[in-house]
Amino acid sequence: MADYKGVLICGELAEDKITTVTKELTNTGRRLSDDLNQPLSLLLIGQNIQETAAEAISFGADRVFYIAEGLPFAESLPEHYVAIIASVFNQIKPSIVLLSHTDMGRDIAPRLAASLGTTVCMDCIELEIDADSKSLLQTKPVYGGNAMAVWVSVNYRPHVVTMRPRSASPAQSDPSRKGQIVPITVEIDESTIKGKLLETVKEEAKGIKLEEAKVIVAGGGGIGGSEGFQLIQELAQVLGGTIGITRVPCDEGWMPTSLEIGQTGHIVSPDLYFAIGISGAPQHLAGCSGSKCIVAINKDPEAHIFKEADFGIVGDYREVLPILIEKCKALRAT
């Protein structure tokens, strides 16, 4: 086990740029590497990304691996990614492999762990090196967020871990940092890959992305139907924010599923989060509890959301919202 050293981050790119979640991983990875006194490596999979690779050094990586050639990137399957990560793993034998708990990480981490014959912990929100045993303490929400579990691996290396987006702040760039950039080519035995990716369809969200919004006005089951979301939309508009929803409006078909916030949807951390007609189920809070300020509007004084909010009004949203909208409009005018 002592043969395994260092931390490997499997980074994600969007339009050839390092994503925010990867910067979050880099921040965590740097801390763990420092605690272990071992190097931090970052793997980037993409085309024409020399510059991005160089930039990654500034975020804290000691070594950046990037794939230069040999991959049909657009149609790449999870199997390709697993093969690449496994081959980099075999070169450097890190003791910790970090991925983000995104669509990609969720899919790849279990396959990777199974193929490396090791163990894995999904959706962690905290990682820490135990001072005495030097083992990795992996904290993750369980039971929909009702509880937290802390795991350690027994005799299995590497630790494959996915981290929940927004559970750490992103690393800041420090251009003075030095590091090594290692282009690699990978040979993949295509005969072992049986599936095919036919298409990827992105349903571009209009306006502000939920992850980037400063203000989110979220409506839940209490809104009662798609008409009610007009008020939600209006409030979001005057506050310069965007709309979010809980599972209920998705299931009921009032709003598109792509707006869902929570354990299985978007994880957001705006400065201001309005929870309107939302009861406060842990699975929903999992997606918004990182918000700086949470305001709850609910007609049931016993609703759990009031235990998780900073400010609250007990009342019918149909009464409250028009006044909020009015008042905010007046404020904006002055």
Binding site: L198, T200, V201
Partner: peptide, 12 residues
């Protein structure tokens, strides 16, 4: 399902 859309795969 992916966060902002979907993908279509075929597998044997």
């Amino acid at each position: 399902v992916i966060l902002d859309g979907y993908q279509v795969f075929t597998v044997p």
